[in-house]
């Protein structure tokens, strides 16, 4: 839970807030603006970022996608609010490529 969360309601009961992110997908050439919400899961964040890039500028690979935030790999089921991802934060989405493959 973030320090900014209100005390009245548990985080899962609060209305989702828009969280605009600075995001980059794998080896794409540019950071992009991607809006998500506090209620989105990390998996949904990965999909939202990938939507703008995967198969368009970066060829899609058959692997799970993972999200890194402040150097930390986030669990896919965690929500944006739970992960402490704040507006204007930077996230990086990478393919979870098994070792030995490239």
């Amino acid at each position: 839970m973030t320090e900014n969360a209100t005390v009245e309601l548990p985080i899962e009961d609060q209305a989702p807030q828009v969280v605009p992110l600075n995001a980059v997908f794998a080896d794409d050439f540019v950071q992009i603006l991607v809006p998500v919400t506090t209620a989105d899961t990390v998996r949904e964040v990965a999909a939202a970022v990938a939507h703008h890039v995967e198969g368009k500028r970066v060829r899609a690979l058959p692997y799970e996608k993972v999200v890194f935030h402040n150097g930390r790999r986030l669990p896919p089921e965690m929500t944006v609010a739970e992960a402490g991802i704040a507006p204007l934060d930077h996230v990086r989405v990478e393919y979870d490529i098994p070792k030995g493959k490239s």
Binding site: L33, H51, K56, R57, R59
Partner: peptide
Amino acid sequence: KWDTMIDNINANNVEATLPETLP
């Protein structure tokens, strides 16, 4: 990245090479 865009255009999917958000 250019190859991916080229293949999209050759697959008649120019739409995939147009932006939906801001850099």
